[in-house]
Design a protein around this nucleic acid. Structure first.
Lengths: 379, 379
DNA sequence: AATCAGATTTAGATCGATCTAAGCTACGCA
DNA sequence: TGCGTAGCTTAGATCGATCTAAATCTGATT
């Protein structure tokens, strides 16, 4: 899928570092002649206002030592000539770009969309721009995006890793000296600031609720095996089962892509088993919504014929029919905290790594139904 | 809501251009002493490999005139010293940042999320990075984001305007010389490349379907009045009514925020009228989903007691209960085309403005029900 | 040996800002 | 009158790359 074609432009300069130096097509960058560039610069302002570049710079940065009259004169020139600040040039000198890389695995998942909004908001208020990257859960793209952020260079990176299976990526992220914060998922072996939720507790809560309703055959649906949050959730799932002296049946743990489609297929697979489960905790709400769809397509009714609990509490969870029971995770809070942590990390690059873990909350709606043991069950 | 606090940092330099030069707090930018900056530069590589900066630059850019042995030597040095390309520095010289600003009104709307993914993908393959900005339908934020993109400076901007009511914004966007493409919505008075869908045809199709089912009191729910796509859709709505000799009843046209909540409230308002409508076309699917929620909360059943058609065909539309009838718009196609147009515009800044309009498609599911005239109706 | 073309390499200017350290005023005071 | 000082301004170096125009090096040709 990616890269579709050898991308052009300098962005891949760092590629020369890896792979054998294959004889790529000659790449004359930016052959298009630089446009006449009518950009108004500090120089122009200085000339117009009859002062030096340095003075104009002081005015722009609002340094208060400039005389009031001079200041007015300069501001007036800026207004008249239509001056536009050039961040790139300033960044080169100050060694700060005020850009933050944000790498998520799936923008179309409302969980991430809400995190993005929160992060953008917080960082924007602090004067930073967000460079958004979407990995589509792909290690290759994740790798490329991180390289890009380094080249930019971004002042910091907020990252939700796609998988912890790539040693190359783990090494790269550990070596890169950019301040960074992980969110929603960790990367084992990388000591780093992290904002997430108590996945174990959340999953345990959910499964205990299902067991409390009388279910004995409970599945865990969806998610990629190499993702930290899934591992933790499965621990919680197993813990709840263990506490109730129920063994973990591996055939009830079905991985999948962490989206609707993944959930749909995983549920189909579960229902095809000789002794299918009667309930399931899903890796996240997208998976759960896919699972609901699968149930509907086989004529079963979620809540009545099968109990489903999701994870995240996206807006859709309360609106779909049957409404989805789920573990609420407050993505906005996660985003806000991650941004906050990164800003602090940038300010103090050498403080020790911190972790912020939010407690999730069980929200019971319709999809997990009521007491199961009273029903037709007991086969 | 915004800005919560006076944002710091150079991002607001251009602010000095407007407002009266109020005595802001002294702002010494980036007081933190520049970090020791152990960045490996071209210079370092050149010294290590025993060549000049220029030669290293040639190697990096893969210009083929460099001798094979020299090339190898340089690549080896780069590898050993851990060189990371510095886009910012290069951009300053080449006058191209390979960054594209992308301004949308609501990331959490899956319609936009899918557009974003498509755009990112296409631009990424062309060697560009995406700077994402979310306006939350706010003119102020939209204004700030555009300024930011100009300051960056971005090589181009993809923009879905929040509203066409701000003259200041219209002027600013018209004056800014950055290559730009509008998508999903236009801005009247700004001659510019544009990618969108045939809103008039889509809305007309939807309303004609509702009329065909026997409805006579059809509403138009949601959306902000100053948005081009809504205006076009209302034209289509009116056209369909007119064709069937039904007058437009202004009390049946209820604007709202273009999201779930907006749809919820707008529908509540409609149902409270003395003679409520029996069907509605919604501004978009998010609004429609909110409307469904409102119906459900009042005990009415969409499809049976009220017919709803949405707009966009987001994933959720086919999954909610009742499944949402809607006008499919293929956001992925829109994103791809917008990116394509922008790339061409960057290559040829002076070609005349082009418009790409996709034809939408009516998708009938459950929420609009079946023939209405056969029912209890006919009051 | 001199000349020349073609192949490589490079010095130095440049992009547009910031920063340092020094310079210039004007004023107060001895 | 001279001098320190506070207040304001500025020349020139700098960030890390690219680009231009010229220099250097080959080897072949005359």
């Amino acid at each position: 899928m990616f890269p579709r074609s050898q991308p052009a432009g300098p962005s891949l300069a760092s590629n020369h570092l890896k792979g054998p130096s294959t004889e790529l097509e000659p790449r004359f960058p930016d052959r298009s002649p630089a446009p006449p560039s009518e950009r108004v610069t500090l120089m122009d302002i200085a000339a117009d206002a009859g002062v030096s570049r340095a003075t104009v710079s002081l005015v722009i940065r609002n340094v208060p030592i400039v005389a009031g009259t001079t200041r007015e004169r300069v501001l007036d020139s800026m207004r008249r000539l239509g001056y536009v600040y050039h961040r790139g040039a300033a960044s080169l000198r100050t060694q700060r770009t005020h850009a933050i890389g944000l790498i998520v695995t799936d923008i179309t998942n409302p969980f991430f969309a809400e995190i993005i909004v929160a992060i953008e908001d917080r960082l924007g208020n602090a004067g930073y721009v967000t460079l958004l990257g979407n990995t589509s859960e792909t290690v290759a793209k994740q790798e490329r995006l991180l390289a890009l952020m380094q080249e930019y260079p971004a002042d910091g990176v907020l990252l939700c890793p796609a998988t912890d299976k790539s040693d190359q990526f783990t090494r790269r992220i550990r070596d890169c000296r950019i301040p960074k914060v992980f969110f929603a998922r960790t990367l084992p072996g990388v000591e780093c600031d992290y904002v997430g939720i108590d996945n174990l507790a959340g999953a345990q809560m959910a499964v205990e609720h299902l067991l409390g309703l009388g279910h004995r055959r409970v599945a865990f649906i969806g998610g990629a095996t190499e993702v930290s949050s899934r591992k933790e959730r499965i621990k919680g799932y197993a813990a709840a089962l263990g506490k109730n002296r129920i063994g973990v049946d591996d055939s009830y743990i079905v991985p999948s892509a962490p989206d609707r489609q993944g959930g749909y297929h995983a549920m189909n697979q579960l229902l095809a088993q000789p002794q299918p489960p009667t309930a399931a905790l899903c890796f996240n709400d997208m998976v759960a919504l896919g699972a609901l769809q699968s149930l509907a397509s086989t004529g079963k009714r979620a809540g009545d014929d099968f109990a489903i609990v999701g994870f995240d509490d996206v807006a859709e969870a309360s609106l779909c029919r049957p409404a989805l029971s789920t573990i609420a995770t407050r993505p906005g809070k996660i985003g806000e905290a991650a941004a906050e942590l990164l800003l602090e990390r940038i300010a103090k690059p050498d403080q020790i790594a911190r972790k912020v873990i939010f407690q999730p909350e069980l929200i019971v709606r319709e999809s997990c139904g009521h007491a199961w043991s009273n029903r037709k069950h007991h086969s």
